[in-house]
């Protein structure tokens, strides 16, 4: 009988431990969001969104150029990675056969696991050295490479969710395979594909290390795509590790803007996916 009590007690204790770990995980999230919101809101005002950074010692100043820079690079990166990711996703889901498909899918997953800093030094060697300077273009290429595997795999998943009957109906009406993929499968999965792109954009917007090696930074408005450019992530890093109180506060402000952006994209994308799966 004693042994039974012991077993039940162990069952209870370990179950409680598992539940506790689910509670513990909430603590860092709440703490991070709380500090980002509290310290960020204190730093943010209208000028923060419209002014350029001020030199050290002068208070005020903003991050307008960093916001513009992040938007520029992410837009360009999406333009570069979307065709590749989309077509590769279509290949994996619709046309791929046998070992070649397995290999491509595997390498896509491996590419997804490559640390972003490696992507950064790769693009440095490939683009920055070749062009002779840091540039918005190089930064976009680096972010694009990071986005490709995310778009590819989510496109593949979304295309697979399109019911077979839809394809069969299209083929039965005499459409070619190509017409079926472009006009039926792709179109009915478009909502899902967009969510995958949103997740990739969210990931790219927060990347710092690869941008640091490729686009560097800029305290003024960007002068062209072949010139260095500012970004929110690099802004947070350089201001965060600086010795100035005022800059720390501004780093929190930029962190708030970035986190709101990233969470908005993530939550919207996940809600859309969940709604589609539930249907």
């Amino acid at each position: 009988m004693d042994r039974m009590y012991l077993r039940r007690a162990r069952n209870l204790v370990m179950s409680v431990m598992c539940m506790a770990s689910a509670v513990v995980v909430i603590i860092p999230l709440v703490m991070i969001l709380f500090y980002v919101a509290a310290d960020g809101l204190r730093a943010i005002n209208w000028g923060f969104f419209t002014n350029l950074p001020k030199p050290v010692g002068e208070t005020g100043g903003g991050m307008a150029n960093a916001i513009a820079g992040t938007f520029t690079m992410v837009t360009l990166a999406t333009g570069l990675s979307l065709p590749v990711g989309l077509m590769a996703g279509i290949y994996l889901s619709e046309f791929g056969r046998g070992r070649l498909r397995e290999a491509v899918r595997f390498l896509t997953d491996v590419l997804n696991g490559v640390p972003s800093i490696i992507t950064g030094i790769f693009v440095y060697v490939l683009v920055v050295v070749a062009m002779g300077r840091y540039s918005a273009l190089a930064g976009s290429v680096a972010l694009g490479i990071i986005m490709i595997p995310i778009i590819t795999r989510s496109t593949e998943e979304m295309l697979r969710m399109v019911p077979k009957s839809l394809r069969e109906a299209s083929l039965a009406l005499g459409a070619t395979e190509q017409q079926t993929v472009v006009k039926i499968v792709l179109r009915s999965a478009s909502g899902g594909i967009v969510t995958g792109v949103m997740l990739a954009v969210a990931r790219a917007a927060g990347e710092t290390a690869p941008v640091l090696f490729t686009a560097l930074n800029n305290r003024y408005w960007n002068q062209g795509l072949d010139q260095p450019i500012a970004s929110l992530a690099v802004f947070i890093y350089t201001y965060g590790i600086s010795p100035f109180e005022d800059w720390h506060s501004q780093a929190w402000g930029a962190a708030l803007v970035l986190v709101v952006m990233v969470l908005f994209l993530n939550i919207t994308a996940r809600l859309v996916v969940r709604a589609r799966q539930g249907r």
């Binding site: 991070i32 917007a205 990347e207 710092t208 290390a209 947070i236 962190a255 990233v262 969470l263």
Partner: peptide
């Protein structure tokens, strides 16, 4: 989803 640099800050 939270960016690495925000964790750092």
């Amino acid at each position: 989803a939270i960016p690495s640099v925000v964790y750092g800050l």
